[in-house]
Amino acid sequence: MLEMMTLVLMGTIALAVYRIERGPTGADRMLSSMLFGTSGTALTLLLGEVSGLHRLHDMALVFALLAAVTAVAFVKRAWRAGD
């Protein structure tokens, strides 16, 4: 069951990569990379459960934090409309 779930989550992430490819604006790309904050956290927690490694919970925390950091960097620095 858990293995099935990891595959489903991989599928959702593949859809998000497709959205990054397509764009069309920078904000679209940024929000698909935000999706990796949530899906990546979920996937890490699942992998932790599959392999019995509870240390991976810390990595899930890092994923969650970094999504926010990149979003801030994007808004404060790299953003320009119509890109």
Partner: peptide, 30 residues
Amino acid sequence: AKLYAIWLLVLFASATSCYLVAHAARTGGI
């Protein structure tokens, strides 16, 4: 407790970054 703490952090982070992106898109004129 740790699992729910992770969820709370994700909720907070995604609500905040969602606001940031929406704000940037709105002021940027999308």
